[in-house]
Nucleic acid binder design. Sequence first.
DNA 1: TATTTATGGCGACTATTTACGACGTTTCTC
DNA 2: GAGAAACGTCGTAAATAGTCGCCATAAATA
Lengths: 331, 331
Amino acid sequence: MATIYDVSQLAGVSLATVSRVMNKNTNVSEKTKQKVLAAMAELGYRPNTFAQSLASNCSNSVGVLVSQLDGPYYGPMMAEIEAALRADNRHVIIAVGHSDAAQEIDSVEFLLSKGCDALILDVEAISDEYLIKLSKSSTPIVLINRYIAEISDCCIYLNNELGGYMATRHLLDLGHREIAYISGPSKKHDAIERLEGHKRALAEVGISYDPALCFEGDYKEDSGVDGMNYLFSQNKTFTAVVCANDQMVSGAISVCLERGMKIPQELSFVGYDNIPFARYVSPKLTTVNNPIHEMGKMAALWLLKNLYKKDVEVANVFEPELVVRNSAIRI
Amino acid sequence: MATIYDVSQLAGVSLATVSRVMNKNTNVSEKTKQKVLAAMAELGYRPNTFAQSLASNCSNSVGVLVSQLDGPYYGPMMAEIEAALRADNRHVIIAVGHSDAAQEIDSVEFLLSKGCDALILDVEAISDEYLIKLSKSSTPIVLINRYIAEISDCCIYLNNELGGYMATRHLLDLGHREIAYISGPSKKHDAIERLEGHKRALAEVGISYDPALCFEGDYKEDSGVDGMNYLFSQNKTFTAVVCANDQMVSGAISVCLERGMKIPQELSFVGYDNIPFARYVSPKLTTVNNPIHEMGKMAALWLLKNLYKKDVEVANVFEPELVVRNSAIRI
DNA sequence: TATTTATGGCGACTATTTACGACGTTTCTC
DNA sequence: GAGAAACGTCGTAAATAGTCGCCATAAATA
């Protein structure tokens, strides 16, 4: 493999000049530049990334830590992050935290040890303190789906409370008054916030929140199944169910269909996230849009702006939007 | 940050000895080893990845190129690759090819320029010739979902023809004789092979393949919708539809349900891939299992064995399996 | 002539790997 | 029992391929 030395020899210039051409920062005459470029082309020269990183202490890589890679949720986010960073010739290194504090910390250390310039984190179990401390170290971090007041500048998040409110409000507007809720895990921030929104909507019309009509799931399809079975076992009446994500709706609806119920005629459902499949299941899901791909893109842009000094606009907080389809009807 | 030099000073040994302790390959006396380890701990020493890569010409990184990151298909694969490589302290760099030859080649070059030790490729548009040439270069590659005879050793693939055969055979066994087919794009290898299997199954029972009952989709939900509308417009009778993947089944079924049809009573469906959602849509899909996560894992193990010299077992070819659920019934 | 611009040259620097060789101890052979 | 070979252990120094900054110098411009 040709080195920068070979290029300088062939072009008849010094090492410094070759470096100047590559990093296009200082003045080089057009003629010299062309000579160097020609030499590079002739030799098929590629700068050695390892040496560049060593000398500049910059790897042009960003570590992305997510809870999981399978499932419908993180793919779109990763896609946007990859695209935005790739367009600026940076690469992304992935790691998985499995929503477990020890594994998440381990993953952060792993990414750091690999020399990432920055980290994009979608973590659930790591404590605020750890993240605050981490953000003060030399490696910048961006948090997706999480708000920590002390480091709010590097947080990209959705107004989950509002989303939870919108879901329930929609059902109330359709005349529903007995509304069950299948929640996400109570240790996850977004699950708590969505439930808060649900409660606020109920309170707004003077309905008191009934814990017996609430089941705590884990965001997976199976817990939608469990939740539905639990709700039916309560011997309480309800005309609608809000689920804290679309996957649990899908599990919940499958239980109803197996019992021969007609959806949405006998029971209305509202989901959350608007995952791609929400449009193709039957009935098509009424759900709250979670602009996860936009947040991924924004996290990448944040780094481009703050770390790599590109001139781009960034936003921190995103608003949910209700997507009305066919799974919830007027009572 | 402490360097290897600091460690050697504190431990009172040479640089080489510290390096030997880290790489535990050559003989170091237990006493010396302990001294070095103690010095490392005291200094909180972390080897500099960039310098390691420069000196050893090995980055411990593997580039993974897939067609897309969103969608239900690649997540499980990436998850397995990440887990297997991570367990051996290697990291994965991702890139997206968008099923386009120019972009795929660009992505390969990109990953190569980033100093990957090896590449895992799930590419559709790149030519066999390019891949054969690439495999002869110094960077090893592994191909997922593709078979090229000349470099069969580094191909990890599914017997797609057999899967296509199984899908149609299942319907034939249930008594169906008029079977429509919604295919994947005719330029994709797996789509062609699956269709071949379909034809073989038909031929086996003496049914001639009718092109009018076949629609070419693009593997996305919407083309399942288009395919179904096309089939209904043909004024031909059919009692079952095979789709070349589950996403198209989902689109196709949604058309039928909107027309008020009962599925599977009026029309049977068989899909392909067994994506997670296949279990939760209604009716639950009868489909052909595509062990994509196992293939991902195998690709990683292949590298562990052939590149990083770990002692593991690898398999190249995977067999599909029919998963019988509720979307296809006896006629 | 003074000032700016372009370029060369040199060396410091980055943190590690690795080939080679040195040194001392053990073991084997005659 | 002595000399030689083998071996384990460890250090030295070269190599890795760039970046970066300083200074000197030459050419172009004002």
